[in-house]
Write a protein that binds this DNA or RNA. Structure first.
Lengths: 204, 204
DNA sequence: AAATAGTTTTACCATTTGGTAAAACTATTT
DNA sequence: AAATAGTTTTACCAAATGGTAAAACTATTT
């Protein structure tokens, strides 16, 4: 009988797959690499997950779920607006190390899946989160805390300002000619200065 | 003797490679697909470009160059600051159709190249552009047009706000549960509202 | 027109890669 | 302990894929 909890082996394989897919993408990942990373035979990977696509779908769904969960939690946190913004801006340090990698990964694979023949990847929309966020924004507007603006636009602006510097690290580094250390310094300063930027942008 | 200008065939292959690499990435692209797209035999692709990696390097470099050129031109345009911001925000419509795809592509492959064994992809930093932009910001600050802020941080904020909604279209669509048409509508409204957002954020 | 140089096609190949059948092994049930 | 079910390893394979040698063809030069 199949136990409710996953085998140790099965877990190790999934964890390994996560790492390899994250680094190399669906096309770049090799089943052998995943097996090596998990220290099991390649046939075992197929035994547990049947095919590369199936394994990928599972891993992707889980990652996307966790990712959206993190974003959602911050967006709907029951704190004052300025505080929420600080939370959002700072989640790069507080969150998992591989957060940028995960964000980039999801973006890339979502895009690619549109071009692939196989069934497109989907992620569950944050309907409830979005609704809650919109309400909070509208309340803040009515209370005169922030100026009237479209909550969806604000949402997009906020995640743009907080996510892009993480997701596009390699690109921005290349443009500005910074190394990794310099970039981290920039990000640290950014954590301090960005809330002001945003708060002033939305002030009445 | 090799003519200075590229053969028609050679051009077609490069153009085809651009499209295929853009859609599928380095790992996902097949030499056969490129050949088909260019309507030539696969052997010809190798005849002109030797290997997949070489072809990719050439295509990538050209794309990155054009991409940075576009950004650079907007950033250093000799116009007033509010006007420059409008330019930056609107470049999504004025620029090539595949601008988001290109941005995403460059980001992804830059990231991946860090994980690959072969030589990392590099793009020429926008040193001169950056310098010019920093000067313009400082001038605007001294003139009291905008409040004092770190030009690099402003730079990052500006490209975050303008690029991310393009690059992360698939992700944001998924989060908000929007279809392509709804997203375009949102982007159009954004073109109007974003300059205000930015201008207020940087107002003295 | 003969020779040369450049281009395109044909016909391959060596490797890599996702995948599998079946043997071997281990735990669990009867 | 025999049988059964689940797990791991072994030994493969078919297809895909990047790449190439050489033939065939075309334009250019001598």
């Amino acid at each position: 009988m199949k136990p409710a909890e996953l085998t140790d082996t099965e877990q190790r394989i999934k964890q390994a797959a996560r790492q390899v897919f994250l680094r190399r993408g669906l096309d770049g990942a090799r089943m052998q690499d995943i097996a090596d990373e998990a220290k099991v035979d390649k046939a075992l990977v197929h035994y547990y997950f049947r095919s590369k696509d199936k394994l990928f779908a599972i891993v992707f769904e889980e990652m996307a779920g966790r990712f959206l969960g993190q974003i959602g939690r911050v967006l709907t946190a029951d704190v004052s607006f300025p505080e929420k913004i600080r939370l959002l801006v700072q989640h790069d340090t507080s969150m998992a190390d591989d957060f940028p990698l995960v964000a980039n990964f999801i973006m890339t694979e979502l895009n690619q899946s549109q071009h692939r023949t196989n069934q497109p990847l989907t992620i569950r929309p944050l309907h409830d989160v979005q609704k809650l966020f919109v309400e909070q924004v509208n309340t803040a507007i009515e209370a005169g805390l922030i100026r009237p603006l479209n909550p969806v636009q604000l949402f997009v602006s906020l995640i743009s300002l907080s996510l892009f510097p993480l997701v596009a690290q390699s690109l921005i580094q290349a443009i500005l000619g910074l190394d990794g250390v310099q970039y981290q310094t920039m990000l640290t300063e950014r954590t301090r200065s960005l809330p002001d930027f945003i708060n002033q942008a939305i002030a009445p």
